[in-house]
Design a protein around this nucleic acid. Structure first.
Length: 322
DNA sequence: AAAGACGACAACCGCCAGACC
DNA sequence: GGGTCTGGCGGTTGTCGTCTT
């Protein structure tokens, strides 16, 4: 240990002796001009939790859904904050399922008392990123999965779950943006498109790559993210509202399949690359919610947060008390 | 005021895959 | 086909500032 310390001291005194690889890493994680600084917003937290539930420790993929955030940053945030937060909520951070009382007790860092735990466990309340949706997913890690295996039956989905898997297919409005589901799906439903009944089979597209951001896109990053996420949240909110009124989610068919790519990556398609078009076409989903004051970090997912809050309001009540 | 604990975060390490020769 | 290089990734470590005792 001392040797390592001495080495570090030496490095500092001489200046870090970086190889090309570490220079690259420093650029990506620290120096890149498009990096978003500052704390993570609540919306980003929620998104990370959900993405982590779906993707596991694939930080790079998670980061690709959070423009301006690096995998390293998200990873650190997870280990230093989110993980503990989930544990305190009685949620196993690795499985995203409610921990048993024993598990909670086993967690050294967990200060939750058994009474509180009992409250939400007996109520059958989910964690924010409920595990229910993933329970019904038969998705295999590397994405090479037979379509049959990838089918998801939403009919067994628990009603309280406001954000089932399709939420990740945060599609862009067809008005110039990419769209498969849920927007298009939802539109058909709302507008009663008889030619396009609710299509239970949803295609997926290649996952956007953060590295695809060019400098101009970077300049517009927040706007882009804001819009796409807003539409996403609105769509999901509508979907969830509808489902709550019907007391079920997607009962007609309730199955979706993968396209030829068959990659879990593809589920998350925020299409950040649609910036240019989006700029010219105002987002029809703007619902008048005031942007979060913290424009750097919170604005991007403001609607998403509200949706989350609204959808989980009832069932989340007990959590607030914990 | 000092020492230890803790949290945040940058940096490092090792592995892997793809490109190239 | 095999070796080397490079980039990407996830896990882990080290440092530093802040908080607590």
């Amino acid at each position: 240990m001392h040797g390592q310390k001495d080495l570090n001291l030496e490095k500092r005194s001489k200046g870090l002796q970086r190889c090309g690889k570490s220079c690259r890493l420093r650029w990506i994680n620290y120096l890149r001009p498009d990096l978003k600084r500052g704390m993570f917003s609540q919306e980003e937290e929620d998104l990370i939790i959900m993405l982590h539930e779906a993707l596991g420790n694939r930080w790079a993929q998670i980061a690709s859904q959070l423009p301006g955030r690096t995998d390293n940053e998200i990873k650190n945030f997870w280990h230093s904050y989110l993980k503990k937060k989930l544990i305190k909520q009685g949620v196993d951070p690795s499985t995203h399922k409610p921990m048993t009382e024993t598990q909670v007790k086993d967690e050294k860092d967990c200060s939750i008392d058994s009474t509180s735990l009992h409250i939400f466990q007996t109520n059958g309340l989910p964690n924010l990123a409920t595990s229910a949706r993933m329970d019904h997913l038969n998705i295999i890690d590397e994405g090479n999965v037979a379509i049959e295996d990838a089918k998801v039956n939403f009919s067994s989905k628990q009603v309280y779950d406001p954000l089932f898997l399709s939420e990740f297919q945060a599609n862009i409005h067809p008005n110039g943006y990419h769209s498969n589901f849920p927007y298009y799906h939802l539109q058909n439903r709302i507008e009663g498109d008889s030619l396009n009944p609710i299509n239970p089979f949803c295609g997926f597209n290649s996952m956007p790559n953060l590295t695809d951001f060019d400098q101009k896109n970077v300049m517009d990053r927040d706007h882009c993210c804001d819009s796409s996420c807003s539409s996403m949240s609105k769509n999901v909110m509508n979907e969830a509202k509808e489902s709550s009124s019907n007391n079920s989610i997607i009962e007609n068919g309730g199955i979706f399949a993968w396209n030829e790519e068959n990659k879990l990556d593809s589920v998350f398609n925020f299409q950040f690359s649609g910036i240019q078009i989006e700029e010219k076409k105002p987002n029809i989903f703007q619902n008048g919610h005031q942007q979060n004051i913290d424009d750097q970090s919170s604005g991007d997912f403001s609607n998403y947060s509200m949706m989350f809050q609204e959808l989980t309001e009832t069932n989340h009540h007990d959590f607030q008390q914990i």
